[in-house]
Protein backbone atom coordinates (compact mmCIF):
# COMPACT_ATOMS: atom_id res chain seq x y z
CA UNK A 1 0.00 0.00 0.00
CA UNK A 2 1.32 3.36 -0.97
CA UNK A 3 2.15 5.62 1.90
CA UNK A 4 0.64 8.59 0.16
CA UNK A 5 -2.66 6.79 0.09
CA UNK A 6 -2.99 6.71 3.84
CA UNK A 7 -5.75 9.09 4.79
CA UNK A 8 -4.56 8.92 8.39
CA UNK A 9 -1.89 11.44 7.52
CA UNK A 10 -4.40 14.21 8.07
CA UNK A 11 -5.30 14.77 11.70
CA UNK A 12 -9.04 14.95 11.28
CA UNK A 13 -9.20 11.90 9.08
CA UNK A 14 -7.11 10.04 11.57
CA UNK A 15 -9.53 10.87 14.35
CA UNK A 16 -12.36 9.55 12.24
CA UNK A 17 -10.54 6.40 11.37
CA UNK A 18 -10.05 5.42 14.93
CA UNK A 19 -13.61 6.30 15.64
CA UNK A 20 -15.20 4.61 12.70
CA UNK A 21 -13.55 1.65 11.08
CA UNK A 22 -12.23 -1.66 12.19
CA UNK A 23 -8.59 -1.59 13.12
CA UNK A 24 -7.16 -3.64 10.29
CA UNK A 25 -8.04 -4.05 6.68
CA UNK A 26 -8.40 -7.80 6.95
CA UNK A 27 -10.72 -7.50 9.87
CA UNK A 28 -12.77 -5.00 7.95
CA UNK A 29 -13.06 -7.36 5.02
CA UNK A 30 -14.16 -10.27 7.16
CA UNK A 31 -16.54 -8.76 9.64
CA UNK A 32 -19.63 -6.78 8.88
CA UNK A 33 -19.29 -3.15 9.77
CA UNK A 34 -21.21 -2.09 12.77
CA UNK A 35 -20.49 1.46 11.77
CA UNK A 36 -23.40 3.12 10.05
CA UNK A 37 -21.34 6.17 9.10
CA UNK A 38 -19.77 4.36 6.16
CA UNK A 39 -21.97 3.60 3.16
CA UNK A 40 -19.37 2.22 0.79
CA UNK A 41 -15.79 1.33 1.22
CA UNK A 42 -12.98 0.24 -1.02
CA UNK A 43 -10.61 -2.07 0.77
CA UNK A 44 -7.17 -2.37 -0.78
CA UNK A 45 -8.80 -2.39 -4.20
CA UNK A 46 -6.56 -3.11 -7.16
CA UNK A 47 -8.09 -3.31 -10.59
CA UNK A 48 -6.71 -4.09 -13.99
CA UNK A 49 -7.89 -4.36 -17.56
CA UNK A 50 -5.64 -6.92 -19.22
CA UNK A 51 -2.02 -5.94 -18.60
CA UNK A 52 -2.88 -2.44 -17.42
CA UNK A 53 -3.32 -1.82 -13.75
CA UNK A 54 -5.84 1.00 -13.56
CA UNK A 55 -6.33 1.26 -9.80
CA UNK A 56 -3.76 0.32 -7.19
CA UNK A 57 -4.49 -0.44 -3.56
CA UNK A 58 -7.35 1.97 -3.13
CA UNK A 59 -8.67 2.10 0.40
CA UNK A 60 -11.37 4.62 1.12
CA UNK A 61 -14.50 4.90 3.21
CA UNK A 62 -17.31 6.81 1.57
CA UNK A 63 -19.16 8.59 4.31
CA UNK A 64 -22.88 7.94 4.49
CA UNK A 65 -25.16 10.84 3.78
CA UNK A 66 -22.35 13.04 2.49
CA UNK A 67 -21.25 14.23 -0.94
CA UNK A 68 -17.83 12.89 -1.82
CA UNK A 69 -16.01 14.31 -4.83
CA UNK A 70 -13.54 12.24 -6.85
CA UNK A 71 -10.98 14.49 -8.47
CA UNK A 72 -7.79 13.86 -10.38
CA UNK A 73 -6.18 14.31 -13.77
CA UNK A 74 -7.51 12.68 -16.91
CA UNK A 75 -6.87 8.96 -16.95
CA UNK A 76 -6.32 8.79 -13.21
CA UNK A 77 -9.04 6.18 -12.81
CA UNK A 78 -11.93 8.22 -11.41
CA UNK A 79 -14.52 6.77 -13.74
CA UNK A 80 -13.14 3.29 -13.28
CA UNK A 81 -13.38 3.56 -9.50
CA UNK A 82 -16.88 4.98 -9.71
CA UNK A 83 -18.03 2.23 -12.05
CA UNK A 84 -16.58 -0.39 -9.78
CA UNK A 85 -19.03 0.65 -7.07
CA UNK A 86 -22.00 -0.61 -9.10
CA UNK A 87 -19.99 -3.30 -10.88
CA UNK A 88 -20.28 -1.74 -14.31
CA UNK A 89 -16.70 -2.81 -15.04
CA UNK A 90 -17.30 -6.50 -14.54
CA UNK A 91 -17.91 -7.22 -18.20
CA UNK A 92 -15.02 -5.19 -19.61
CA UNK A 93 -12.68 -7.60 -21.37
CA UNK A 94 -9.61 -8.45 -19.32
CA UNK A 95 -11.15 -7.07 -16.12
CA UNK A 96 -9.67 -8.38 -12.89
CA UNK A 97 -9.74 -7.11 -9.34
CA UNK A 98 -8.11 -7.72 -5.98
CA UNK A 99 -9.26 -6.44 -2.66
CA UNK A 100 -12.86 -5.65 -2.02
CA UNK A 101 -15.62 -3.09 -2.08
CA UNK A 102 -18.12 -3.19 0.76
CA UNK A 103 -21.60 -1.81 0.77
CA UNK A 104 -22.98 -1.56 4.28
CA UNK A 105 -20.10 -3.79 5.31
CA UNK A 106 -20.79 -6.54 2.81
CA UNK A 107 -18.87 -7.31 -0.36
CA UNK A 108 -20.51 -6.13 -3.57
CA UNK A 109 -19.24 -9.34 -5.15
CA UNK A 110 -20.85 -11.52 -2.49
CA UNK A 111 -22.80 -14.25 -4.31
CA UNK A 112 -25.77 -13.60 -2.03
CA UNK A 113 -26.04 -10.03 -3.29
CA UNK A 114 -27.82 -10.01 -6.60
CA UNK A 115 -26.33 -7.71 -9.20
CA UNK A 116 -29.66 -6.16 -10.09
CA UNK A 117 -30.42 -5.40 -6.47
CA UNK A 118 -26.96 -3.90 -5.97
CA UNK A 119 -27.70 -1.61 -8.87
CA UNK A 120 -31.06 -0.76 -7.42
CA UNK A 121 -29.29 0.44 -4.30
CA UNK A 122 -26.40 2.12 -6.10
CA UNK A 123 -27.74 4.40 -8.82
CA UNK A 124 -25.75 6.15 -11.50
CA UNK A 125 -25.92 9.30 -13.58
CA UNK A 126 -23.72 9.51 -16.65
CA UNK A 127 -21.57 12.16 -18.24
CA UNK A 128 -24.17 12.78 -20.91
CA UNK A 129 -27.94 12.42 -20.56
CA UNK A 130 -29.16 9.02 -21.72
CA UNK A 131 -32.94 8.89 -21.81
CA UNK A 132 -34.56 5.68 -22.97
CA UNK A 133 -36.58 5.53 -26.18
CA UNK A 134 -39.94 5.78 -24.43
CA UNK A 135 -42.15 8.57 -23.18
CA UNK A 136 -41.01 10.98 -20.49
CA UNK A 137 -43.29 9.33 -17.98
CA UNK A 138 -42.10 5.83 -18.84
CA UNK A 139 -38.53 7.03 -18.51
CA UNK A 140 -39.02 8.12 -14.94
CA UNK A 141 -40.63 4.86 -13.87
CA UNK A 142 -38.51 2.52 -16.02
CA UNK A 143 -36.53 1.32 -13.01
CA UNK A 144 -39.60 1.13 -10.80
CA UNK A 145 -41.18 -1.16 -13.38
CA UNK A 146 -38.06 -3.27 -13.84
CA UNK A 147 -37.81 -3.89 -10.11
CA UNK A 148 -41.57 -4.25 -9.71
CA UNK A 149 -41.47 -1.67 -6.94
CA UNK A 150 -45.01 -0.42 -7.50
CA UNK A 151 -48.20 -1.34 -9.27
CA UNK A 152 -49.52 0.24 -12.42
CA UNK A 153 -51.89 2.76 -10.81
CA UNK A 154 -49.07 4.26 -8.74
CA UNK A 155 -46.78 5.01 -11.68
CA UNK A 156 -48.14 8.41 -12.55
CA UNK A 157 -47.84 9.72 -9.03
CA UNK A 158 -44.36 8.26 -8.63
CA UNK A 159 -43.36 10.03 -11.83
CA UNK A 160 -44.87 13.27 -10.60
CA UNK A 161 -43.13 13.00 -7.26
CA UNK A 162 -39.69 12.53 -8.73
CA UNK A 163 -40.11 14.99 -11.56
CA UNK A 164 -41.14 17.51 -8.94
CA UNK A 165 -38.14 16.56 -6.85
CA UNK A 166 -35.78 17.44 -9.70
CA UNK A 167 -37.77 20.55 -10.59
CA UNK A 168 -38.91 19.31 -13.97
CA UNK A 169 -42.60 18.79 -13.28
CA UNK A 170 -43.82 22.20 -14.37
CA UNK A 171 -41.93 21.95 -17.65
CA UNK A 172 -43.13 18.48 -18.62
CA UNK A 173 -46.47 17.95 -16.94
CA UNK A 174 -48.36 18.59 -20.18
CA UNK A 175 -46.08 16.42 -22.29
CA UNK A 176 -45.56 13.32 -20.19
CA UNK A 177 -46.37 11.14 -23.20
CA UNK A 178 -43.88 12.95 -25.42
CA UNK A 179 -40.42 11.95 -26.47
CA UNK A 180 -37.70 12.84 -23.98
CA UNK A 181 -35.40 13.67 -26.87
CA UNK A 182 -37.14 16.95 -27.51
CA UNK A 183 -36.14 18.21 -24.06
CA UNK A 184 -33.04 20.33 -23.68
CA UNK A 185 -29.82 18.66 -22.61
CA UNK A 186 -30.15 19.94 -19.08
CA UNK A 187 -33.76 18.82 -18.85
CA UNK A 188 -32.78 15.41 -20.16
CA UNK A 189 -30.13 15.11 -17.49
CA UNK A 190 -32.66 16.09 -14.83
CA UNK A 191 -35.00 13.46 -16.24
CA UNK A 192 -32.25 10.87 -15.90
CA UNK A 193 -31.72 12.02 -12.34
CA UNK A 194 -35.43 11.61 -11.63
CA UNK A 195 -35.23 8.14 -13.14
CA UNK A 196 -32.31 7.25 -10.90
CA UNK A 197 -34.04 8.66 -7.82
CA UNK A 198 -37.31 6.85 -8.53
CA UNK A 199 -35.85 3.51 -7.47
CA UNK A 200 -34.82 5.04 -4.14
CA UNK A 201 -31.10 4.31 -4.20
CA UNK A 202 -28.95 4.48 -1.07
CA UNK A 203 -25.97 5.66 -3.05
CA UNK A 204 -25.87 7.81 -6.18
CA UNK A 205 -22.82 7.80 -8.44
CA UNK A 206 -22.38 10.81 -10.70
CA UNK A 207 -19.75 10.79 -13.44
CA UNK A 208 -19.14 14.39 -14.48
CA UNK A 209 -22.90 14.89 -14.64
CA UNK A 210 -22.68 18.53 -15.66
CA UNK A 211 -19.82 18.44 -18.14
CA UNK A 212 -22.17 18.65 -21.11
CA UNK A 213 -24.47 21.27 -19.59
CA UNK A 214 -24.65 25.04 -19.57
CA UNK A 215 -24.07 27.04 -16.34
CA UNK A 216 -27.78 27.29 -15.50
CA UNK A 217 -28.42 23.58 -15.84
CA UNK A 218 -25.21 22.90 -13.95
CA UNK A 219 -26.40 25.10 -11.13
CA UNK A 220 -29.72 23.32 -10.85
CA UNK A 221 -28.05 19.90 -10.78
CA UNK A 222 -25.61 21.08 -8.12
CA UNK A 223 -28.38 22.53 -5.99
CA UNK A 224 -30.29 19.29 -6.32
CA UNK A 225 -27.35 17.17 -5.31
CA UNK A 226 -27.15 19.15 -2.07
CA UNK A 227 -30.80 18.39 -1.35
CA UNK A 228 -30.22 14.66 -1.76
CA UNK A 229 -27.97 14.40 1.26
CA UNK A 230 -28.19 13.11 3.92
CA UNK A 231 -30.84 10.68 2.69
CA UNK A 232 -28.62 9.52 -0.14
CA UNK A 233 -24.88 9.09 -0.24
CA UNK A 234 -23.44 10.84 -3.27
CA UNK A 235 -20.14 10.19 -5.04
CA UNK A 236 -19.39 12.64 -7.83
CA UNK A 237 -16.55 12.64 -10.32
CA UNK A 238 -15.69 16.11 -11.47
CA UNK A 239 -12.99 17.95 -13.34
CA UNK A 240 -14.38 21.18 -12.13
CA UNK A 241 -12.55 21.87 -8.87
CA UNK A 242 -14.80 24.81 -8.09
CA UNK A 243 -17.72 22.45 -8.34
CA UNK A 244 -16.07 20.05 -5.91
CA UNK A 245 -15.59 22.91 -3.47
CA UNK A 246 -19.19 24.04 -3.91
CA UNK A 247 -20.93 20.75 -3.34
CA UNK A 248 -18.64 18.15 -1.80
CA UNK A 249 -18.27 17.54 1.93
CA UNK A 250 -15.31 15.32 1.32
CA UNK A 251 -12.91 14.94 -1.56
CA UNK A 252 -10.73 12.12 -2.80
CA UNK A 253 -7.77 12.94 -4.98
CA UNK A 254 -6.69 10.18 -7.34
CA UNK A 255 -3.54 10.24 -9.41
CA UNK A 256 -2.33 7.50 -11.76
CA UNK A 257 -4.67 4.99 -10.18
CA UNK A 258 -3.55 5.67 -6.61
CA UNK A 259 -5.50 7.38 -3.91
CA UNK A 260 -3.29 10.28 -2.95
CA UNK A 261 -5.41 12.04 -0.41
CA UNK A 262 -8.87 11.79 1.09
CA UNK A 263 -10.29 14.30 3.51
CA UNK A 264 -12.77 17.08 4.12
CA UNK A 265 -13.02 19.20 0.98
CA UNK A 266 -12.02 22.46 2.62
CA UNK A 267 -8.94 20.97 4.12
CA UNK A 268 -7.90 19.12 0.98
CA UNK A 269 -8.06 22.30 -1.04
CA UNK A 270 -6.76 24.82 1.47
CA UNK A 271 -4.30 22.77 3.38
CA UNK A 272 -3.47 19.54 1.53
CA UNK A 273 -1.32 17.05 3.33
CA UNK A 274 0.36 15.78 0.19
CA UNK A 275 2.53 17.73 -2.15
CA UNK A 276 0.95 15.94 -5.14
CA UNK A 277 -2.45 17.21 -4.07
CA UNK A 278 -1.12 20.71 -3.56
CA UNK A 279 0.35 20.69 -7.05
CA UNK A 280 -2.91 19.56 -8.58
CA UNK A 281 -5.33 21.79 -6.72
CA UNK A 282 -2.85 24.62 -6.23
CA UNK A 283 -2.15 25.16 -9.89
CA UNK A 284 -5.76 25.96 -10.60
CA UNK A 285 -7.15 27.00 -7.34
CA UNK A 286 -6.22 29.73 -4.88
Amino acid sequence: MSTAADPASSPEASAERTASIAPTVTAAAQQPYDDSAVALSAVDLTLSFGQHTILSNITADIRRGAVTALIGPTGSGKTTLLRTFNRMNDKVSGYRHDGDVLIDGRSIWHPGLELTSLRRRVGMLFQRPNPFPMSILDNVVAGVRAHKMAGKPAMKSIAEQHLTEVGLWAAVKDRLKDSPFRLSGGQQQLLCLARALAIQPDVLLLDEPTSSLDPNATESIEALVRTLVPDITVVIVTHNLAQAVRIADRTIFLNKGRLVEHGPTKQLFENPAEEETANYVGGRFG
Partner: peptide, 24 residues
Protein backbone atom coordinates in the same frame (compact mmCIF):
# COMPACT_ATOMS: atom_id res chain seq x y z
CA UNK B 1 -24.91 5.08 -23.36
CA UNK B 2 -28.65 4.34 -23.09
CA UNK B 3 -27.92 0.63 -22.81
CA UNK B 4 -25.52 1.26 -19.95
CA UNK B 5 -28.16 3.48 -18.41
CA UNK B 6 -30.54 0.54 -18.37
CA UNK B 7 -27.92 -1.80 -16.96
CA UNK B 8 -26.98 0.71 -14.28
CA UNK B 9 -30.62 0.98 -13.35
CA UNK B 10 -30.54 -2.71 -12.50
CA UNK B 11 -32.39 -3.96 -15.56
CA UNK B 12 -31.67 -7.50 -16.65
CA UNK B 13 -30.25 -8.20 -20.08
CA UNK B 14 -33.70 -9.20 -21.31
CA UNK B 15 -35.28 -6.03 -19.92
CA UNK B 16 -32.55 -3.90 -21.45
CA UNK B 17 -33.10 -5.51 -24.83
CA UNK B 18 -36.87 -5.23 -24.68
CA UNK B 19 -37.12 -1.73 -23.23
CA UNK B 20 -34.12 0.08 -24.67
CA UNK B 21 -32.09 -1.69 -27.35
CA UNK B 22 -34.89 -2.96 -29.59
CA UNK B 23 -37.20 0.09 -29.27
CA UNK B 24 -34.22 2.29 -30.14
Amino acid sequence: LPREGAVALGMSDAQTARKVTLPW
